[in-house]
Simulated scan of single mutants.
Amino acid sequence: MDIDLDRVSVDLAGTRLVHDITLSAAAGRVVGLVGPNGSGKSTLLRCVYRALRPAAGAVRLGGADLHALAPREAARRVAALPQEHSAEFDFTVAEVVGMGRLPHRGAFAGPTAGDEERCAAALRRAGADHLAGRGFLSLSGGEKQRVLIARALVQEPRVLVLDEPTNHLDIAHQLEVLALVREAGPTVLTALHDLNLAAGHCDLLYVIEAGRIVASGPPVEVLQPDLLAEVFGVRATPVRHPLTGAVHLLFDRLDRLDPLDPLDPLDRP
């Protein structure tokens, strides 16, 4: 399912944090939002999973206004993994993942055998099936992240919104989770801090600075040294991955006088 943001602006506490953003993610594509801390990525994503309502503009799913949908219908179409989550009660992992099936059941209906099969399969795909009987609050940050990915997938959304989904994950699980969400098939809109992960796993990137889009396009076209110096304040050298051909970035500080010299002037004896 296509998702389109049409001239979306967002205000919080009387301050405009997102300004007139228009972007599109075609069905089945992985679209990344990148930008420095505080640029507005998370605020924008919160509009897409209905935690915030735009001050102006609209979020459309397949042409329908997302914020005009009934909550249950919206939850059948969009699942989210926010950057921050809380759990006051120590549900088991199996119970947490099972919550992803709630939009597909009646108000007072219990889980079906099919629901339980889907939850078990999602936990296996996320590499977390061995945690099913554990209390969620007892898990490490990386284990919690994999369980929440499983919960989002078992919701069977048409659009998956991920805010820093690789937080707390080791490198193997970072790669596995990003491959998993692509293989699952929904349209994916994700914010990522790691530009190399964004380059290797996104079809399209939008660069956001101070609440505005400053560049967009395929990663190889967007992640150019001049733009990265201006937006992120780093010197970047793009190279090609020898196996995948994806662009990979080597970083250094902008204030280093000689990029080939490993020592700062102050470090020299």
Rank of each mutant, 00 (worst) to 15 (best):
I21R: 04
G38H: 06
S24C: 10
I149Y: 09
G114Y: 11
S24Q: 15
P262N: 09
N37C: 00
R7V: 03
G62L: 04
L66T: 08
H173K: 12
A75E: 11
S138K: 06
A68E: 14
F108W: 14
A58N: 06
N196G: 05
D255S: 08
L33D: 06
V159C: 12
L169K: 02
P219V: 08
V8M: 01
V188G: 10
V222A: 03
A198W: 06
L153N: 11
V97Y: 07
M99A: 09
D129Q: 11
E183R: 15
L169D: 03
A26G: 14
A113P: 00
G38A: 04
A58I: 05
L52S: 11
V34T: 02
P259F: 05
A51R: 13
Q83K: 06
E164G: 01
R16N: 06
A74D: 04
I213R: 15
R134N: 01
L175G: 00
A68R: 15
V247D: 08
A210G: 03
I171S: 03
G245V: 10
G63K: 07
G245P: 05
E156T: 13
L266R: 15
H241P: 01
R124F: 03
D4C: 10
A64I: 09
T22E: 07
H130E: 12
V220E: 15
H241Q: 06
L102H: 13
G62P: 05
T22P: 03
T43W: 02
V147D: 04
A210D: 15
A109Y: 07
S138D: 14
R146S: 09
L223M: 08
A122P: 12
G57E: 14
H19I: 00
R46I: 02
R60V: 02
R268P: 00
L17I: 12
G245E: 05
E73G: 07
L205M: 13
T244I: 09
V181K: 03
V181Q: 00
P225Q: 06
V78I: 15
M1H: 10
Q83H: 09
L45W: 08
N37I: 04
A120V: 02
G211D: 08
H173R: 10
N37R: 00
E176G: 07
D20F: 04
D252Q: 14
L23E: 02
D264N: 12
L205R: 05
A172S: 14
H19P: 05
N37L: 03
L197Y: 01
